[in-house]
Amino acid sequence: MINIFNHFGNQLLDGFGWTLLASFLALVFSLLFGILLALLEVVPAKFANQVGRTYVEIFRNIPLLIIVMFFYLIVPKYFVQLDGFSAGTIGLFLYTSAFIAEIIRSGIQAVSNGQMEGARSTGMTYQQALQHIILPQALKIVIPPLGNQFVSLIKDSSILAFVAGFDLMYQANAIASVTFDTINSYLVIGVLYLLITMPLSYYMQYLEKRLA
């Protein structure tokens, strides 16, 4: 393992950087888009509910690989040029958004209806009640499953290897095919993945305690 790291340190570091970047971008965008989708699903408007629901059902029920392949093979052919990294990151973000939307929607719906009625009965608008009363309470509820989803996202970023995204998994494939030391090549990146996911896990636990 040390050997692999000594010989291919730069390559692994490069992969670590791309994995980190892809995960960070996908996490930020999927969180924002997921919140938007969740709101579409809960607002009292049938059409918006339908739009949110349809998106979620389509994207969470297709394998991530197929979504990524779509952006890697089909989109460049007919629409816009995308390299492997972009195609992978976009696919990852669109896929994860569907799951985040479900987490946040269930968080919002887990806040008792009485909280909304209490707020509305004082003359607050729906948006005000959502902003001041419902969402802050929902946030507390969704932190643990959200942390789960973020960790999944980081691990799912290994899908980039299939479309030449230069991430950790891609580098491990490359190193293994040169050295034939398959076991150690993948063990090294396993440790590197842990370096990203563990701090995130701990941070989410910290948030959970602080907000509770």
Partner: peptide, 10 residues
């Protein structure tokens, strides 16, 4: 309300 419905986060 019967169940008060105080805002739990305030």
């Amino acid at each position: 309300f019967q169940h008060f419905n105080l805002y739990k986060n305030k």
